[in-house]
Design a protein around this nucleic acid. Structure first.
Length: 422
DNA sequence: TGTTATT
């Protein structure tokens, strides 16, 4: 299916350096650039040799290197395969019973909450329901969720607009959810012993004879980029995965000298839960289940979760609240639930998605809002972004203030009371 | 053995 997603490249037009030229840069390229900027800013911040000013030539040069070498996939639809980092083949129409309003969202940042998920997807249209899937035991996010829209058009728009969006270190994937069924669970295969020369496309070709492939991946060495000879294939149905094991395990792919191993992949959530519970079980405190022991156990659980999941400790706005209320001072941008950022000089046709795309790569964004004229529904030239962590907000502001978006130069700052109408 | 894919 060919979608009219040309309008999805609007953000990237006239991007960065050549404001009067029309680019056809993909959103992914834009987001890659954002990540590069973040890295550069972070390293400059660490070295102490940087002040919050608009972009320098040095940074732009780095970005252009990335632009020419980076991923160039423009496809924002979600298909039966995932060729190289979410670049998917066009999706074929599902069965007539498939929901056209319910989406599955994969590769969400670990610390993203259900409310943030709802805020992000709610910027597209009215949401009927939204759920972030969490580990039943630990409560930790499993990194995916579901968004069910009222209107199928909004679901399609969400796929076109938000698939491939970079949020922190992740690139989210947005696709139609298949009808839930036991038959589609546990259909993920781990494949090892692959020829190092085998491409993802060739891997899919090898496995596609056994059924519909939902995702595929070949793991590569982080440094060299060379295949590690291992990968994953997720089939639509478990029976397809079973047949693929029967047909391909211990077999040599065409042209290969060694046989491959094909088996069901581990479930990371199960493994981690078991590891955590195993450690908890060894705790002496559990033999004395009084209130103090429970508290200690809770503390231990928190630490274990931090270690196991790499949960980043957050700058706590609550701590600041205590200080500000006692001292009677105001801290710009701090609204009690995060750090509010004022974005000025947006175009009349700006929408929430541009704010997500600009700020999402810098860290946890809880909310974005474009201020619109009541009668025309056009952007009045400014908007707000709320970010959870001060340091991420500060880097975003420093990076995006003075940023040229289309033919406009943005002004980005912590929100002050001057612009606040209570 | 993954950027935790079926609530």
């Amino acid at each position: 299916m060919l979608r009219k997603d040309c309008d999805q490249t609007f953000v990237c037009r006239d991007f960065i350096k050549y404001p009067r030229r029309r680019f056809n840069t993909s959103r992914r390229q834009l987001q890659t650039n954002m990540a590069v900027r973040l890295c550069d800013v972070a390293s400059l911040l660490r070295s102490g040799s940087w002040a919050p000013e608009p972009w320098t030539g040095q940074v732009i040069a780095t970005m252009e290197t990335q632009l020419s070498n980076g991923p160039t996939c423009n496809n924002t639809s979600n298909g039966p395969s995932t060729i190289s980092n979410n670049c998917s083949s066009p999706v074929e129409s599902g069965s007539i019973e498939d929901s056209k309003t319910n989406l599955i969202v994969n590769y969400l940042p670990q610390n993203m909450t259900q409310e943030e998920l709802k805020s992000l997807f709610g910027s597209i249209g009215e949401i009927e329901s939204c759920k972030l899937v969490r580990d039943k035991i630990t409560g930790q996010s499993l990194g995916y969720g579901f968004v069910n829209y009222v209107d199928p058009k909004d679901a399609e728009k969400a796929i076109n607009t938000l698939n491939g969006l970079r949020l922190q270190t992740k690139t989210i994937k947005v696709s139609y959810a298949r009808p839930s069924s036991a038959s589609i669970r546990d259909a993920n295969l781990y494949v090892s012993g692959l020829p190092k020369t085998m491409t993802q496309k060739e891997l899919e070709q090898l496995f596609s004879q056994y059924g519909r492939i939902i995702t595929s991946r070949i793991l590569v060495d982080q440094v060299t980029g060379v295949s590690r000879g291992v990968g994953f294939i997720r089939f639509d149905r478990r029976v397809e995965a079973e047949e693929a094991i029967k047909g391909l395990n211990c077999q040599k792919p065409p042209g290969a000298t060694e046989p491959i191993t094909v088996k069901f992949a581990n479930n990371p959530s199960q493994k981690t839960s078991q590891a955590l519970l195993s450690q908890l079980y060894q705790s002496p405190n559990r033999r004395y289940p009084g209130p103090l022991a429970q508290q200690a156990q809770r503390f231990r659980l928190d630490n274990l979760l931090n270690m196991a999941y790499g949960v980043k400790s957050r700058f706590s706005p609550m701590a600041i609240d205590g200080v500000t209320s006692l001292a009677g001072i105001n801290i710009p941008g701090h609204a009690g639930t995060g750090w509010c950022i004022f974005v000025y000089n947006l175009a009349p046709d700006a929408d929430e998605s541009i704010l997500w795309q600009m700020f999402g790569p810098f860290g946890a964004v809880t909310n974005v809002k474009v201020i619109r004229d009541f009668n025309t529904n056009k952007c009045k030239g400014f908007g707000f972004v709320t970010m959870t962590n001060y340091d991420e907000a500060a880097v975003a502001i420093a990076s995006l203030n003075g940023y040229r978006l289309g033919d406009r130069v943005l002004q980005v700052s912590f929100k002050t009371n001057k612009t606040h109408k209570a």
